[in-house]
Design a protein around this nucleic acid. Structure first.
Length: 240
DNA sequence: TAGGCCATCTGGTCCT
DNA sequence: AGGACCAGATGGCCTA
């Protein structure tokens, strides 16, 4: 995504941008402002076919399978949960024979043992990838883009790139907000410690400037954001 | 039909 | 030794 941000690698991001171009309008709105260059390639617009058409979205036959893990290929379906079809057995044997004795990582094992170990490793790897996909689904759920059924799910790479840009955008918005508060405080003859405060995009108070102090009395609530009672705070101003 | 995306398998490497 | 992580290979599905 060379057009995204300074330092953005142009490798897989470039391919992802092709998909990003099809993002919905909200994603564009949410992500284009504040870092226009980053969003140039993010002007998703076209809704693509329903997820179901690609095998996404529908829970796997196992019920507890993650959404994205629903097997799409017949062969893959047969192998879910570590169970493999007879065809897969054959394939496995063929591969084993091709490697020959000792070709495998643990050639000392008996074939049966070896196969069972392989299956268990495969199952573990599958589970790991499913967990990864679950995490990606979680990420998709919290970044702004159209979640409507008519819009295709973000690809993995697009999800990561979008999330990264979203974080950067939030940090930038926060920075601007702080500047604004400092400016307003100055206008009222108040000190503006905010201006000297470094941007801490991942700090609790920084990320959730208002909600972090929701249960606190007003001065604390304001301090959670700027360090001083704010003219912007309706509680400080005596308003309800 | 080509290209993109994905799930899965597999072997290698590192860590506990 | 076993598990986690990673990257390459493979094959299927979908869209332009």
């Amino acid at each position: 995504m060379s057009a995204c941000l300074p330092g953005e690698p142009s490798g897989p991001g470039g391919a992802a941008m092709a998909e990003l171009k099809s993002l919905s309008g909200d994603a564009y709105l949410a992500l284009s402002h504040g870092y226009a260059a980053a969003a140039v390639g993010l002007a998703y617009g076209a809704a693509r076919g329903p997820e179901a058409a690609r095998g996404y979205g529908a829970p796997g036959p196992g019920g507890d399978l993650p959404v994205a893990s629903a097997p799409r290929a017949p062969a893959a379906a047969a192998e879910s949960s570590g169970e493999q079809s007879g065809d897969e057995d054959d394939a496995f044997e063929q591969r084993r024979r091709r490697r020959g004795p000792g070709g495998a990582a643990d050639g000392r094992r008996r074939p049966r043992e070896q196969r069972s170990l392989r299956l268990s490793i495969n199952a573990r790897e599958r589970r790991r990838m499913h967990d990864l996909n679950d995490a990606l689904d979680g990420l998709r759920a919290v970044i702004p883009y159209a979640h409507s059924p008519s819009v295709r799910k973000l690809s993995k790479i697009a999800t990561l790139l979008l999330a990264k840009n979203y974080i950067l955008m939030q940090a930038q918005a926060l920075d601007e907000m702080r500047r604004l508060v400092a400016y307003l405080n100055q206008g009222q003859g108040l000190a503006a410690p905010v201006a000297a405060a470094p941007l801490t995009p991942f700090g609790q108070a920084a990320v959730y400037p208002f909600s972090a102090g929701a249960a606190l009395p007003c001065p604390d609530k304001c301090a959670a954001f700027s360090g001083t009672p704010s003219a912007l705070c309706k509680h400080c101003n005596g308003k309800p």
